[in-house]
Design a protein around this nucleic acid. Sequence first.
DNA 1: ATTACTGCAAAGCATTTGCAGACTG
DNA 2: CAGTCTGCAAATGCTTTGCAGTAAT
Lengths: 137, 137
Amino acid sequence: MKETGDNWPSDLKKTKPRQGVLSVLEDAQGPLSAREICSELGKRGESAWLSTVYRILELFVKRGVAVKAAVMSNETALYELNRAQHKHYAICLGCHKIMPLNNCPLEKFVPKLEDEDFHVTGHNLEVYGYCGRCALK
Amino acid sequence: MKETGDNWPSDLKKTKPRQGVLSVLEDAQGPLSAREICSELGKRGESAWLSTVYRILELFVKRGVAVKAAVMSNETALYELNRAQHKHYAICLGCHKIMPLNNCPLEKFVPKLEDEDFHVTGHNLEVYGYCGRCALK
DNA sequence: ATTACTGCAAAGCATTTGCAGACTG
DNA sequence: CAGTCTGCAAATGCTTTGCAGTAAT
């Protein structure tokens, strides 16, 4: 007798902060930082401590619920739900808008590395530049 | 009447810490963190303060002498000389060995993005995994 | 002599950790 | 009830900043 169609990860205890973080991630338009998630929770009247959000994100990443999507130039990590499809982003240095890339330039590349005696488990890519709007300034 | 074949960047004041950082970078086998540069300077009897090393690296990056080559998972930035050729690295999660990649998987990719109204100024890529030696463990 | 650079200390951020009380299953 | 999770505070690690004395041109 589950509530709404919630796909809660198997054996995780269902606590308010965890459900909050999950739903914020579900509603997100793009990848979010821990701080953003935290203040979004605040707006929803369900505040959770920042350290708790970090712990939850760590847990979610470990369980494959979420992924660390990118790391901005100021060393801030951005998270999003793991939609089982590998994504990368272009980040505008002007307005910080985040644009998803349509495909991963590494797809053809990784197999070559495997030949060279390196077993690839993951990678991280961010593209920086200016979006159409900011390029004009 | 220059000393040794030193290619000192145009208008930069030649100070001991700067020359030290430059020579450490010149001798480096791979990208180094600020801390590593600092302790390498120490070994050479030319200690410089960590904050100074950061300031010098920032300056070098601004002048195009060096580049921020990668950012490790613990948020530590690695620097190396700007050899005018774009490089990426594969980082072994076991032994932290750093292997340079032979070519950039984004070369063919960037032009496509330019078409989509995004002006690319740079990108950041790290590949994680295990080297041949560590994969066996 | 000027101006820029460095040593040093202290601040800033993002993230992590320790602990006791609160809550889940 | 037992074990896990959270609120909270404090610590950590990388990097930046402020300032006064020092060195380079």
